[in-house]
């Protein structure tokens, strides 16, 4: 009786442990990489986003459902540059999935392919939440997406060689579309070049670098430390001369500090989606930049 029960349990475990591969199972740490994976993988992939667009990607609980999702994944597609340092290493270790451990083919970190900005010359936590590898918010610049897309498409083909022609074709189509979209956005965004702006967190360096926006103040006194009223007052005094035209914050951030400053200066506070799904309109990776460029332009009056 007992033996039969054990055999049954063993059979169940084995059956559960050896699933037939249907589609490439992708665990995407942030929605932008999930969206890019869907563009490049099409019908051959199944994507699970670990974070919602309104979640601060620095702070995610390594909750059981995520461990289960990593366990099943053929590849984890994450931002890297230490953005997920607080949760991804734990998920990987707890999952017991050998295919996605650091160094394995199934471990893809987008920022590894990008030249980072704001690489600090020294690291001191008194300076706040500083990323030693550079600013991790690479999604701000669509040129970064071009680079990552190529690398990611190659990686899909390596892991799933049967469909490599499919991935190659999808990448070609995506890239053609993407390059022309970039030209369109850059043309539309030309009036933004040199425009003075205020940002809430150092989330936007790649976006401002791309569009030539000039950041004259950051609301957080130090990265990751929420601003106090007295600090905001100081910023308010400091920006009198530079006359910023926009105040930017991300959809996942508390917009209070931005609104505080907006009320006192009359400068419009703009909540950009930051990632795919951050606002309702930014529902795919093309729309993300479309929406951001349009929001910036609209708020210039």
């Amino acid at each position: 009786m007992r033996m039969r029960f054990l055999v049954l349990i063993f059979g169940f475990v084995l059956a559960a442990a050896l699933p037939a591969r249907a589609a490439l199972d992708i665990f995407a740490c942030e929605p932008e990489w999930g969206a890019l994976s869907r563009e490049l993988g099409g019908a051959k992939v199944k994507v699970r986003d670990a974070t919602s667009p309104l979640q601060d990607p620095h702070f995610v609980t390594a909750r059981p459902s995520l461990i289960a999702a990593v366990r099943k994944a053929d590849i984890v597609v994450c931002n890297g540059a230490d953005l997920e340092i607080g949760w991804l290493p734990l998920l990987l270790r707890k999952s017991g999935n050998r295919d996605v451990q650091p160094g394995a083919k199934g471990n893809f970190l987008a920022a590894d392919f990008i030249n980072k900005l704001e690489i600090p010359t020294s690291v001191d936590r008194a300076l706040g939440d500083i990323h030693p590898q550079g600013n991790p918010h690479i999604v701000g610049n669509p040129h970064n997406i071009s680079i990552v897309a190529q690398a990611l498409s190659q990686r899909f083909a390596e892991i799933d060689p049967e469909n490599s022609a499919y991935y190659q074709a999808r990448y070609q189509a995506f890239n053609d579309h993407w390059q022309s979209a970039i030209v369109k956005w850059e043309t539309a965004a030309a009036p933004l070049r040199g425009l003075p702006i205020v940002v809430q967190h150092k989330t936007w360096v790649y976006l401002t670098d791309w569009l030539g926006l000039k950041v004259v103040a950051t609301l957080e006194p130090r990265p990751g430390i929420p601003p106090t009223t007295s600090h905001l007052q100081k910023v308010l005094n400091e920006i009198r001369d530079s006359k910023p035209r926009l105040i930017l914050n991300a959809a996942y951030e508390n917009s209070k500090p931005s609104r505080w400053l907006a009320e006192r200066t009359g400068v419009p506070a703009v909540t950009l989606p930051y990632t795919v799904g951050g606002t309702k309109e930014a529902d795919d990776i093309f729309q993300l930049y479309e929406v951001m460029v349009n929001m910036l332009l609209e708020n210039l009056e």
Binding site: G80, D82, I85, P89, P102, G103, K105, N107, L109, D112, F113, I114, N115, V123, P132, Q133, H143, N144, S146, I147, Q150, A151, Q154, R155
Partner: peptide
């Protein structure tokens, strides 16, 4: 557009700590 320094798989970031 900045070109990636290396096109192949990057070296493992180890447990990529601080």
């Amino acid at each position: 557009p900045r070109q990636p320094e290396e096109e192949q798989a990057p070296v493992s970031t180890v447990s990529a700590g601080i």
